[in-house]
């Protein structure tokens, strides 16, 4: 069944505050196999001019699991989770995410489009600190396989 295109432009409430910890950044860095000292060691990060250890550029994927479920699981949208794959991801980073940040994600449905048999759901999330500082924009393209409206 196709997705509900009436939801294009829908904005969702901010996710609950997520505190970025040093240990989570380290765990993520170890998991991706990239132990750059600025991800691992407070002193190395400070020597590099950062107030605390910083997170790898793709770290915000962790936060996406806090704000995306309300979009993907929106009963009015009608996504069949078994049919979706991650098509594309973009991060626009106004500054590196760092330990101590308390972040919220505010997702909106930027577009829904059909191409061939597939549908494309574009979710754009503004990532801000709880103090209101804009940190990043995370945009995901979710491909829903074979759910495009068919003629005839």
């Amino acid at each position: 069944m196709p997705m509900n295109t009436a939801l294009i432009g829908k904005e969702y409430p901010a996710s609950s505050p997520y505190e970025v910890s040093r240990e989570k950044i380290r765990e993520f860095a170890i998991a991706i196999g990239d132990q750059n000292p600025v991800y691992m060691d407070e002193e190395a990060a400070k020597a590099a001019g950062y107030p605390d250890i910083i997170a790898p550029p793709t770290f915000l994927t962790v936060l996406s699991f806090k704000y995306s479920p309300q979009v993907i699981g929106d009963p009015e949208l009608g996504v069949n989770y078994a049919m979706v794959v991650h098509g594309e991801q973009e991060f626009e980073l106004l500054r590196p995410v760092r330990a101590g940040d308390v972040l919220v994600g505010k997702p909106r449905i930027a577009n829904i489009a059909a191409r061939g048999r597939n549908e494309y759901l574009y979710v754009e999330a503004a990532i801000e600190t709880v103090e209101g500082e804009k940190v990043a924009v995370a945009s995901a393209t979710i491909v829903s396989r074979g759910t495009a409206p068919q003629e005839g």
Partner: peptide, 21 residues
């Protein structure tokens, strides 16, 4: 991401990063 940040020498220098799978 590791490839590009190792090359430029500063993970904090990435302003935009986009990947199509």
């Amino acid at each position: 991401g590791e490839y590009v940040t190792a090359w430029c020498g500063d993970p904090g220098a990435v302003l935009k990063f986009k990947t199509r799978f």
